[in-house]
Design a protein around this nucleic acid. Structure first.
Lengths: 215, 215
DNA sequence: TATATATAACTAAACAGTTGGTTAAACCAA
DNA sequence: TTGGTTTAACCAACTGTTTAGTTATATATA
């Protein structure tokens, strides 16, 4: 006595939050993989296992979905970075903690990388501001800036422009994350993961030596 | 006695090279501004002042046009960088020359930045190889690697992993170029151009101090 | 020398498929 | 019954690409 399968039987209605979440997650994957212009709404719908119209019901437009998907994940960045217990300690300890935090951020949230690169390639003020805020709220830039100022004032660090120094540390960290497809080819690096692991130590080492007072 | 205007009268045929050049230039602008998926063939045709069908006559497909436009401009990179007379001199002089070359490359060819970021975001082996080859052929990576090895062997440089050191120098240089929209926001930098100028000196300074033997 | 032919470059129009988005109706839990 | 959620079908515009026709020019041929 088998029940006739309905030609269309919608799954049990879920909570709004649950549906939105599924859409946001599918969207982030799609935008990460194809970029904003290359992403397809119907692919997002398929991946989220919903009818395409639901995307418009919840998010109004493709563009708005893009914005909200990024805002959603950026909202997690501060928490992710905080896991690395950025706090006091020697300058070296602080730098190591930040380097680890950044490396782990992009390792644990692989969609972030391509989306950040997209927004860097063609910045949209609004979205870039969301990203910048997230990184700011992580506390890392402020901690870095503050510590470098202390070191400078106390004479443990050479006289260098603090903004340039912070820029250098950030680019030393994020540089390989973002540029590794190119660098791997230029230098014949075959194990990106291993190189990234060594990198965390190497970049802190270089930076510390670069800023310390010559004895 | 006016001649009746033909309903459609194609202009005199130009040389193939001239038409192709116009298309390639318009294409590079379009791809740079909108990305591969966001670029529109009809916009490229309008910008190049040709009939859209000519793009297919000369380049077969949008994708092939993308590839050829990038290959075309990458073919110029080696020459651009060579303008900076990368040669011998002290390590500092070599590093300064390379830093200048990189900064000038992206300043003088503004389309490169977003296109490189696109390919870094979603690498296509073939195109990334064209880009890597262009940078390789510029001679800068080899010069850098070679000089750092010399310095290491002769004891003027600390014992550091050369690949990590080269990676650091490249990321110190290209990092700000690519990440400046974000860094400017994080650090409150208002004059990107001025900061970039200072950067050339600051990054070489940091790097040199970072690798030199402690006396 | 005049004429025919082939070819490359070019055109406007057409094409077929895809895209983001819309709509009216159905569904369902409270 | 109500209001929120969901559906299948639909839509106009857009997209990359193709087609058939035109023109200028070089070359072959009678």
């Amino acid at each position: 006595m088998s029940k006739p399968e309905a030609s269309h039987s919608p799954p049990e209605p879920e909570s709004t939050e649950s549906t939105r979440r599924r859409i946001l997650e599918a969207a982030l994957d799609e935008f990460s993989e194809h970029g904003r212009a290359g992403a397809r709404v119907d692919r997002i719908a398929t991946a989220a296992k919903i009818n395409k119209a639901m995307i418009y019901y919840h998010f109004s437009s493709k563009d708005n979905l893009y914005r909200e998907a990024i805002a959603d994940i950026c909202g997690r960045i501060a928490g992710d970075v905080a896991q690395h217990a950025l706090a006091g300690g020697t300058l070296e300890e602080v730098l190591r903690a930040i380097a680890s935090a950044y490396a782990e951020l992009f390792r644990s949230r692989p969609q972030l990388r391509s989306i950040f690169l997209d927004e860097l390639a063609r910045p949209q003020g609004e979205i870039l501001e969301v990203i910048a805020s997230a990184l700011r709220d992580s506390g890392a830039p402020k901690l870095l800036f503050g510590r470098l100022q202390e070191e400078s004032v106390s004479g443990r660090m050479r006289e260098v422009d603090i903004k340039q120094a912070v820029t250098s540390f950030i680019t030393l960290n994020l540089g390989y994350v973002f540029l590794h497809p190119l660098i791997d080819r230029l230098l014949g690096i075959e194990d990106t993961g291993a190189f990234m692991e060594e990198r965390k130590t190497a970049l802190v080492d270089l930076f510390l030596h670069g800023v310390e007072v010559r004895s």
